[in-house]
Amino acid sequence: MKDVSIGQYYPANSVIHRLDPRLKLVLCIMYIVMIFFIQTFTGYALTAVFILALVFISRVPLLKVLRSLKAIIFLVLFTVILTVLFFRGNPEDLLWSAWIIRIYKAALINAGKMALRIILLVLGPTVLTLTTTPVELTDALERLLKPLSYIKIPVHELAIIMSIALRLIPTLVEETDKIISAQKARGADFESGNLFKRAKAMLPVLIPLFVSSFRRADELAYAMDSRCYRGAKGRTRMKIMRLTFKDFAAFLVMAAFFFCILLLRYNWFNIGFIAEIIARGF
């Protein structure tokens, strides 16, 4: 169980891993916004190629990336089925009907686009979390939200709470593991019985876990206190994030791609015909 890594970070040595986390966060948001501008299959296909290229560059195994889709597979299926069942279009579009079920061609197209949209939408943040450690992410978030601290939102405190929580997750997982082993060694059985029985069987694990969490929290508070931790004021950083050339390059690539999507969508400079050609090509 210890192989539950924090979040789903996949350590590898790639340009994407080394990009500034703040920038990655911004790019991810840009990517998500961009998805909502896409309306044609051409656009989705281009985006799919784009994100697959990113995965390839990041050296994260494709299987790992796809695994994160497992979580949303039901959402996708649900959306597709509902769309197909309840869509009411032109009568001449009707493909098939029986009882109260009517399936239209437009419904299938719509459902397909919707599914693609959800999947592509999830892939963006997936690539982000696979290539950025949670600690980097909180740090980046803190930096990006810094302006909010001028309107008295405790950004630093929220960030530190989050990073402590993140830091403690693996520790707690390990601890849970140990306690489960210890109780199993005393003959505890977590695998059989009905739901109620199993929930009750977890008590001998949860109680020691709570006790030790409180102890840990206490000790941590003392440790922080004794090193004069006083919150955000006057605090400097050990790791200073700096934007470098590769960050600008990455930003340019993303912006250019976004621009292409917009071109396709709004037919700026009348070059929507290119999309036509690409679409035919497919």
Partner: peptide
């Protein structure tokens, strides 16, 4: 186990 006292619960 190591530090078995951490498994007490009742």
């Amino acid at each position: 186990f190591q530090y078995p006292e951490y498994q007490l619960f009742d």
